[in-house]
């Protein structure tokens, strides 16, 4: 019988980070963390879990992408620049705005990708999981992970292709 308090203490920060990177909305990320641990409890009743970290991050990514798809479909996402970010970083407001827009465009593009491709992309890019670990979590061959990642990148590149790079201050317009 797993000790859920210990598991939560050990892995909740990583699960939160994963959910927040995909959603960037605090209450949605919190819901995602809760759903992740509830799903893990259901799974633990059916089978013995040997690798909690990979499983929880994989579940969290899946739940977060589901939520992202729902919010993008309902067009409820609100983009805003955090005031503290402006104060605490060296970036100019223009760069900060451009970065925020790029990040939101990538999130919206992720919501349009096929589920498995989006999941592999997030696990590799945001959670830095190896091909082997992703393959183990998703019951895939290592080579198939590479193929899915390549397709995901191509799909995302196509969707981001209409964004023009921001002209730096003082640059030629």
């Amino acid at each position: 019988m797993p000790n859920w308090t210990t598991i939560y203490e050990q892995h909740s920060a990583a699960v939160w980070k994963t959910a927040w990177r995909v959603l960037k909305v605090t209450h949605l990320a919190a819901d995602c963390v809760q759903e992740t641990f509830l799903s893990a409890m259901t799974l633990a009743e059916k089978q013995t879990i040997r690798e909690w970290s990979g499983l929880l991050i994989s579940l969290s990514t899946r739940r977060a992408l589901d939520q992202l798809r729902r919010t993008c479909r309902a067009r409820q996402r609100e983009t805003f620049i955090n005031q503290q970010e402006i104060v605490s970083t060296q970036k100019t407001p223009e760069t900060l705005f451009a970065d925020g827009e790029l990040a939101e465009r990538l999130r919206a593009a992720l919501a349009d990708l096929p589920a498995q491709q989006a999941e592999v992309f997030c696990l590799r890019t945001f959670s830095d999981m190896s091909y082997h670990d992703i393959a183990a979590q998703l019951n895939l061959e290592d080579t198939h992970v590479g193929v899915l990642l390549h397709r995901a990148r191509n799909g995302l590149q196509r969707q981001l292709s209409d964004i023009r790079p921001l002209v730096p201050p003082g640059g030629n317009s």
Binding site: A13, V15, W20, R21, K24, A29, E85, A103, L156, Q157
Partner: peptide, 18 residues
């Protein structure tokens, strides 16, 4: 563009949580 978007997400400050 994609790499820049990935960097933008990775450089976002994540609040302490959950």
């Amino acid at each position: 563009q994609l790499d820049a978007a990935i960097s933008a997400i990775l450089s976002e400050e994540i609040p302490v949580g959950p």
